[in-house]
């Protein structure tokens, strides 16, 4: 059976993360993440390096290719191999994202078509990380058309988290607290919970065969259950979900509170209280973003580790 482990799992995670970061900045630039936003740059800067680093991990995981690197160039050869598609997609994405970042850095307007091509390639990158596994009939647990869906949603979510985190630390000049971002993230996390549920429903329906159920059991109740429930479901999904729900509730009330505050004579006190509260929620927000990323990495590792071959190699 295969030997894929941490390196491949991290590679799949980074592919999605970089793609998601690009798409976050793209969405911010196009105004989907609120009118005032500080997310429209960092994602562009980090996307190419992250995906490139991931690709480097894939290469260090090679056997003979590591000793004879000239063989690697042949990985462009087989058009029926999803891995070959991936090599094309990743190369193109790294290239385009790098140019786009250069434009952003020079504060020049990049041609619109460049940004759009980058966004399409980013989506392709995220989808590819799922497709790579989904086409393998030899591993029934992976062999599900919902696999790329789960990976794409998780890529968007982790990308948004990373970009928010980095913007918080590196875009200090203009901190903006856009409720739109929380709303989008709430939506993404919900989608991820839904797609993971559908993924398991599909497997337990039996249509993927008995071995896929054994893999799923590893995650839900057996050796991998602890990281699954604790890191992925609780910390990575349900925790953030609860937080974003609460945030969007608070923010609905916020405009009212602001008005009241302006009317109040004693402006100092409530403002101070408000700041304390917002610093707290700011920290929670950062924690949440971190947790989403931990969840995303856990997801990739668990999916890779839970791979059981369609046949265990024994006579029954």
């Amino acid at each position: 059976m295969g030997h894929w482990g941490w390196l491949i799992a991290i590679y799949l995670f980074l592919g999605g993360l970089g793609a998601g970061a690009y798409l976050t900045s793209f969405a911010a630039e196009k105004g989907f993440l609120g009118k005032k936003t500080n997310l429209n740059q960092v994602g562009y800067y980090v996307s190419a390096p992250i995906v490139a680093f991931g690709a480097l991990l894939l290469i260090t995981d090679l056997g003979q290719g590591l000793k004879k690197p000239w063989l690697i160039i042949n990985m462009f050869l087989n058009f029926s191999s999803v891995m070959t598609w991936g090599i094309y997609i990743l190369t193109a994405f790294i290239f385009v994202a790098f140019i786009k970042a250069f434009f952003v850095w020079k504060k020049r307007q990049a041609p619109d078509v460049l940004s759009y091509i980058g966004a399409i390639l980013a989506l392709a990158t995220a989808a590819y990380t799922g497709m790579l596994l989904a086409v393998i009939e030899g591993v029934p647990f992976w062999n599900s058309y919902l696999m790329p869906v789960v990976f794409v949603v998780s890529a968007l979510s982790t990308g948004l988290s990373l970009t928010s985190l980095l913007a918080h630390f590196f875009e200090k000049q203009h901190q903006v607290h856009e409720e739109r971002v929380s709303q989008v993230h709430l939506w993404l996390v919900s989608m991820e919970i839904l797609s993971i549920t559908a993924f398991f429903a599909l497997i337990y329906s039996g249509s993927q065969g008995a071995v896929a159920k054994l893999s799923a059991n590893l995650l839900l109740t057996e050796s991998l259950a602890l990281p699954f429930w604790l890191l992925l479901i609780l910390a990575g999904l349900v925790g953030p979900l609860v937080f974003y729900v609460q945030q969007s509730r608070c923010q609905k009330k916020a405009p009212l509170a602001m008005k009241e505050q302006n009317l109040s004579e004693n402006a100092d006190m409530p403002a101070g209280v408000n700041q304390g509260a917002s610093a707290k929620s700011q920290n929670a927000l950062l924690l949440c973003d971190g947790a989403v990323m931990v969840g995303g990495l856990t997801l990739r590792c668990l999916i890779v580790f839970a791979a059981l071959p369609v046949w265990n190699g024994l006579l029954s």
Partner: peptide, 23 residues
């Protein structure tokens, strides 16, 4: 072969193996 290991997952019969020495 670059030793990516992809075929090891794809083959349902565990026929391809990576030789440790050559990778």
């Amino acid at each position: 072969c670059v030793g990516c290991g992809y075929c090891l997952y794809a083959c349902p019969y565990h026929a391809p193996h990576i030789q440790k020495k050559s990778g």
